[in-house]
Design a protein around this nucleic acid. Structure first.
Lengths: 352, 352
DNA sequence: ATTAAAAATGCAAATGTTTTCATTTTTTGA
DNA sequence: TCAAAAAATGAAAACATTTGCATTTTTAAT
């Protein structure tokens, strides 16, 4: 089926022959240039250039068992949520001279085992996953092979695997607390299903904690489930808004918030005068929306870069002294989508 | 620096030993199961399971020179433009049992050579690039190694390399023509720099052709350059709108259009009553905007999938009979962001 | 100039598969 | 039941590199 072959590309031995040295020296030249004498170095450099030689990073994998490739498994690529993360992760990896193998499972955790198998077959040196909720199988497969695993995006002090991310409970808490401070008492929650989404689950719990409430105390249109999809969120929120308008809406993330904004616009409801909206994430574009979206910033880039560093560093991930866990601080960013309706409002203004 | 090694993972010979057959047979079992007898098949299957063996796809690369890996080089990952493409490309590749190596150069073509080198070192079987404008070096490097190259996203009947995509000239033409049909005469163009962006260049030319105009005939605030960035576009368009409001705005793509919408909203300008907006791309979310964005759909998914198929098929790309070029049809999708101000309007309505 | 130590290089084995060719086993047809 | 053909399997070479050990060359110290 496949074309015949792609042999004939010059290899280390052709270069060696042309340079008049042994293959071993050529190998050394590419791995530790300092160790080969200046003169031979030039010879090899020249020969390699003449022949148009490129190192074969793949062939070296057999030797030590490291492929120089790191896997990244995300729920979805095609969504603002992870785009920034992927970009940053990938380019940081590049600067470590590694490459990224990426795959998406579309929020269907059962696909992970197939993906992990495929990654294992490619002998990845490490894997970054999103969040903690994964099936046992893939995790065990990775553990059995001794492949370092890192859960990115969420932080829990008692996480079962090494992790790096924001404390999503706190993130949710901060968002809800802000709403409370601004005087909102009737707030609607719009979240994705939390079954296999620990980030959303933690945020939701943080929100409920700040609200000092229980999920069961929320009426059916004060808690709405929708996927991370602008359209789906928009429709669900339109429905809710028509039934019974809350004072504020707290969204599981900024794409849901965007749906909320569109929902209001399509109904002619003014933000923030008629209803306040707060998101979570601070995705690209959230700052430019009209009105600018008040949200809690998740530092995707920092998370991604540190994740890449960790995975490349090799060592620290499964450190001997236990599981590495890194908490990245998030930050409330106040813009225009939440109105201050608290009674202190004027007082505070005056004090300034 | 790196950890010692990851040897000790069971290999084909361990499996063979345990199953009581030769390594060659095990190899055959994984590549062409039909060719090995049912009984031995079971033996091997069992042994592999017992040992927790995973194929080593990397070791096989040396044999025939194919790594089962395809490269994808995009200007940027972190942007709605290519997210859908990447997602579709990646998952289609997976179904071909290949993996994707992706890298972004951030609209800086000079980074491509480094990326290509890195991909070559990983012995990719093929590469998909975006558009036609690339430096000579990377293209030559790929050609020298005989690596199939495919330009995705844009189509030109005289493209220098194989391509698959929409005819961006036509796309621009269709968009502008729609505006004309709707009676708009004073239209502003908001496009990204076209230096190393042939897609934008072609669209722009299509637009100008439909308008029967020349770039030089456009006053300074009827032609605006801005990068594909919501914020930058928004600011630029706000400025233009304040100076001198056109009847319609035609945007280089939907993210610019989104900036345009925000610009109008922040100025309290009604869309489409005060100004019409048309985008290009039909990205995720464009249909949900308020008002729904009229745009020209670029079928990212179809492009990506066919690109993957081509690159995996191996053959067709550098076909003997010349360069493979595939044109994917685009489609005007009319929503609410363009107002019909033509004089025929009422007549047409009545006729229906 | 001589010798010891250090640096640079080469040799050959090893890595985990695939693949060619040869050999053994099974099937088929009389 | 036997021979011939077909199918299945095995042995060993090949792939492109790295690496431990041995050897040669260079440097430094006397």
């Amino acid at each position: 089926m496949r074309a015949r072959s792609r042999k004939g590309a010059p290899g280390i031995v052709e270069v060696a022959k042309r340079a008049g040295v042994s293959p071993a020296t050529v190998s050394r030249f590419f791995n530790e240039p300092e160790i080969v004498k200046g003169k031979t170095r030039n010879l090899i450099e020249q020969a390699a250039r003449d022949l148009g030689y490129y190192r074969n990073r793949i062939a070296t994998t057999d030797q030590h068992g490291f492929s120089g490739t790191i896997g990244l498994i995300v729920p979805t690529i095609d969504n603002a949520i992870f785009a920034e993360l992927i970009q940053a992760f990938s380019s940081r990896l590049l600067s470590h001279d590694r490459t990224m193998l990426i795959a998406a499972h579309g929020y269907n955790p059962s696909l992970e085992v197939g993906i992990v198998k495929s990654l294992l077959e490619r002998r990845i040196d490490g894997v970054a996953l999103i969040g903690f909720e994964h099936e046992k199988a893939p995790l065990e497969m990775l553990a059995a092979r001794g492949v370092p695993v890192l859960a990115a995006w969420n932080y829990r002090k008692d996480s079962p695997i090494p992790c790096i991310g924001a404390d999503n409970f706190q993130v949710g808490f901060v968002a809800a607390q802000h709403l409370m401070k601004m005087g909102h008492r009737d707030v609607a929650l719009v979240f994705p299903p939390t079954q296999s989404n620990d980030r959303a689950e933690d945020r939701l719990n943080g929100v409920l904690h700040a609200l000092d409430m229980d999920l069961s105390q929320l009426s059916h249109n004060r808690f709405i489930e929708t996927r991370y999809d602008i359209g789906e969120a928009k429709q669900a929120i339109i429905k809710m808004l028509c039934e019974n308008r809350p004072s504020a809406i707290i969204c599981g993330n900024d794409v849901i918030a965007q749906g909320a904004v569109y929902a209001c616009q399509s109904l002619g409801i003014n933000i923030p005068d008629d209803v306040s909206i707060i998101g979570i994430g601070d995705f690209r574009g959230s700052s430019q929306m009209e009105p600018g979206l008040t949200t809690v910033r998740m530092p995707a880039q920092r998370i991604a870069e540190q994740a890449a560093d960790l995975l490349c560093g090799g060592l620290s991930v499964t450190s001997v002294k236990g599981i590495t866990r890194i908490k990245i601080e998030s930050e409330l960013v106040v813009r225009k989508s939440v109105k201050d309706i608290s009674s202190h409002k004027n007082t505070e203004r005056l004090l300034r």
